[in-house]
Amino acid sequence: MSAAWIVVIVVSLATIAIKGAGPLLAGGRELPRAVAGVVSLLAPAVLAALIVTNALASGRHIVIDARAAGVAAAAIALALRAPILVVVVVAAAAAALLRAIGA
């Protein structure tokens, strides 16, 4: 079996297990109130981390490049209340433009 297939199969099985663990073990049960207060903040915390890592990380290095500029443009579009698809396109276009002019 090729290395690629081993990666595909192992990662798929691991992901199915990771995604399924919570619902399998605690499915359908109300979370205790103390836990619910914590869980409500999970989405903003994880989304912010995804923004930071996707915009600034390159492996283990912090890089400020066209991606960061694209996100800055997206923030402006958001502040101007643009629809989400426009926000995403603005980010991609800003990054592409910067790369095209070699910035």
Binding site: N54, G70, V71, V87, V88, A91, A92, A96
Partner: peptide, 11 residues
């Protein structure tokens, strides 16, 4: 610029 679209989506 698709790599910049990802963090923008999360934003």
């Amino acid at each position: 610029g698709l790599d910049a679209a990802f963090p923008a989506l999360f934003l």
